[in-house]
Nucleic acid binder design. Structure first.
Lengths: 251, 251
DNA sequence: CGACTACTTGAAATATTTCAAAGTGAGTGG
DNA sequence: CCACTCACTTTGAAATATTTCAAGTAGTCG
């Protein structure tokens, strides 16, 4: 059942940005349709990946950034003492790999969590192109900046939030990102393991599991393995940061 | 005793990058001496700041990045529920403000922790200049990338390290940065309050205090208020990540 | 010098982790 | 197609690090 997904990347390999359904949320947003072909030409769409495969590894030379076309990629780095730290999950339409721009080497590894397809965008070509298309260069800064902001949100989460708040935040983040793609924001599949979730959020696996069941008992979500349904978004927002939209103590 | 520092910014305001002692670790590293004047010309050195003053605030329009000339700046953001999260401490020679590049608005606030002086570098001018000086544009990517890596290290620290490990890491980080400037790497003054340290490291103030005294009792450091001396760097490294250089369990 | 803020220290409270074990599910090979 | 294994997930109980609460001390600024 997972193998016949092979079809998808095979077909998609010929798809241009013009035809790609992710067009409105991916790199092309920075490019006028007239120039889209130029961008299109430098993009390699040759990368269907199986679960567990690496897209790149920490310390690999930095050559390209990547856009997720389908599936999910997780990025992680490894501490001095060999422990893994998950630094992000990338869903279709999202760009990863910018961590390498500054040092010419990736500081994270990137691994496929399920059968995935990515577009590879060689950075040298992109740099050339962005001389001609200023909006593209600007978009880069934006991408890196987004990365910084995502990291800083994670910092906030790790240093200030309780286990429940962390899980709620993650669920809402994924929900929002699904919505951007026009998918259901209330029912979706978590592509990562409980372990990855715990690692990402700075919690023990057991804690993750317990929080899921607790939230389920409260009727906020319904969980069944990796499938999640958000039953009470209002409440989930409340849990995630302290206050719901309406009850907030507006100073 | 703190007021006569006023002299320093006043004098320094006329100093060009050429004469600045921070030259080897600051922006000029990206620029050949020949082109340094051009960079020099767009830099404004007119910003002496008192303790507690803001350099910029979150949501301020992004116009410039800043290089710390003297003193210390802390950056922080504020959560939905109004809590402060310290995101970084910037010492002389370090660049801050890149958080605004992507969105054209700062996502953090920046506040002076003591009498400080900064160089302001208008970003639009810098962008123009970096067309002519490719190494400068590259340096920017590098700066943002460094920011990402710093954030990711903090993420690792927050999600994996114990209180002692966190404090040890911070001390070593500051030590290293001092060394880069040619100052003592073993004895220095912590410019930030215990509160800021705790906030940055995701610990309660009391915990910070306790860890300091504990490390002191162990003879690893000597603390007296904000003055710190590292007595056993080896041991401090050990504490910070698990293993000392020599005793490591090399798998 | 007094008031205030920052820092330290102790004891109790608590959230999360760790340890242990059982349940579930998916993929493999007979 | 079933049975088996391995990895993942869930759940409980005990252990633990850190927080919170409370109070005292020290340092700083007007």
């Amino acid at each position: 059942m997972s193998d016949n997904e092979q079809r998808i990347p095979a077909r998609a390999a010929n798809v241009s940005c013009n035809d790609c359904s992710l067009n409105p949320i991916c790199l092309p947003v920075a490019v006028k349709s007239q120039q889209l072909d130029e961008l299109d030409n430098i993009i390699k769409r040759s990368k269907p990946m199986k679960k567990g495969e690496h897209l790149f590894r920490a310390s690999d030379p930095f050559r390209s950034i990547f856009a997720v076309r389908s599936g999910t990629i997780k990025t992680y780095s490894v501490t001095e003492d060999g422990e893994e730290q998950v630094t992000g999950f990338y869903l279709p339409g999202e760009i990863l790999g910018v961590d390498g721009i500054g040092t010419n080497a990736h500081s994270n590894s990137a691994k496929s969590l399920e059968t995935s397809a990515v577009c590879e965008i060689p950075f040298d070509k992109l740099e050339e192109l962005s001389v001609a298309i200023p909006s593209l260069q600007h978009h880069f800064f934006k991408l890196m900046s987004q990365e910084i902001q995502a990291d800083q949100q994670l910092i906030m989460l790790l240093s200030k939030k309780s286990a429940e708040e962390r899980i709620a935040s993650l669920l809402l983040s994924i929900s929002t990102r699904h919505q951007k793609r026009g998918l259901s924001s209330t029912a979706f599949r978590l592509p990562m393991s409980r372990n990855d979730i715990g690692n990402f959020l700075g919690l023990a696996v057991e804690t993750v599991s317990r929080v899921f069941t607790r939230l389920q008992k409260q009727g906020v979500i319904a969980v069944e393995g990796k499938e999640v349904e958000i039953l009470d978004k209002q409440q989930l927002c409340h849990i995630s940061n302290g206050m719901p939209a309406d009850e907030a103590q507006t100073a």
